[in-house]
């Protein structure tokens, strides 16, 4: 089995004339939890959206399971086994919880989708209770679970999560991180983008610190937790 799951090599992404991502390279190995931490506007979401195919890099390459995906359209990338839980959850507010989950399984056949749905309901019993409810009426924590369940519906090998802790109460944040750990233990490789660096590093194997579109530091999570510069900038002293 291939060891390297995702390899991003020297990508440069622009928004018009703004050079948002400057020569970023990183990799995610099978079975890992890797985190990208950094301040607001450092380019974390831009990187995820480039990997997902929503944005394009002018240079370099992105490969997933040793296949180049840098020029694929997003739906092909999802079908290949790479899913993203977008920032701010972005559930379809006017659709029911179950319809949201069905959308997550869009690339899959009926029987496989039904199987995934059963799995997701097993992992998130709350979603099963709320399946007929319009997603816009769910609480923030439930919406985050829905967004994660929806991404899992495509049965991804690599799950990218963009700020899953955003706007949630501390108790819910812990719950969400617990679920991320469980998913990883069940064999899903995780790429986690977070502003809550403490939380992210506490469950990650490795981390990359992003500063204004560049990778400033990369090390194992425990090293980063003890790195003075990182502590000062992201861990509140």
């Amino acid at each position: 089995m291939l060891k390297t799951m995702l390899k991003v090599n020297d990508i440069n992404v622009y928004y018009g004339s703004i050079h948002a991502i400057k020569g970023v390279s990183f990799s995610v190995e099978r079975g890992e939890i890797v985190t990208l931490i950094g301040a607001n506007g450092a380019g974390k979401s831009t990187i995820l959206n480039t990997v997902s195919g929503l944005l394009r890099s002018k240079t370099g390459s992105v490969s997933f399971l040793d296949k180049p995906i840098g020029s694929l359209v997003p739906h092909k990338i999802v079908a290949g086994g790479l899913a993203q839980v977008p920032e701010g959850r972005r559930v379809f507010l006017n659709m029911t919880a179950e319809e949201n989950l069905e959308m997550g399984a869009f690339t899959r056949k009926g029987a496989e989708a039904a199987e995934s749905l059963a799995d997701v309901y097993m992992r998130f019993p709350r979603l099963k209770e709320r399946r007929k409810q319009i997603a816009g009426t769910l609480s923030g924590g439930e919406q985050q679970m829905l967004a994660m369940g929806r991404a899992l519906m495509s049965k991804p090998e690599l799950l990218m999560l963009d700020e899953p802790s955003m706007g949630l109460a501390p108790i819910l944040v812990e719950q969400i991180f617990e679920i991320i750990k469980e998913l990883n233990a069940a064999g899903v490789t995780i790429l986690l983008v977070e502003q809550n660096a403490q939380m992210a590093l506490s469950i990650a194997d490795r981390g990359y610190v992003l500063e204004t579109g560049r990778i400033a530091t990369s090390a194992s999570a425990s090293e980063l937790l003890n790195n003075d510069a990182v502590k000062k900038a992201y861990l509140g002293g």
Binding site: S52, G53, L54, V73, P74, H75, V78, A79, A83, Q84, P86, R90, F92, L93, N94, M95, E99, E102, M103, G104, F106, T107, R150, A151, S154
Partner: peptide, 24 residues
């Protein structure tokens, strides 16, 4: 239908619909 739901998803949020694997 699946296609009909995709229409609703795309009309609500095109970017996220793409992330779901919907061919926009």
């Amino acid at each position: 239908t699946k296609m009909g739901k995709a229409m609703r998803a795309v009309s609500e949020d095109m970017g996220t619909a793409q992330l779901m694997g919907i061919n926009v």
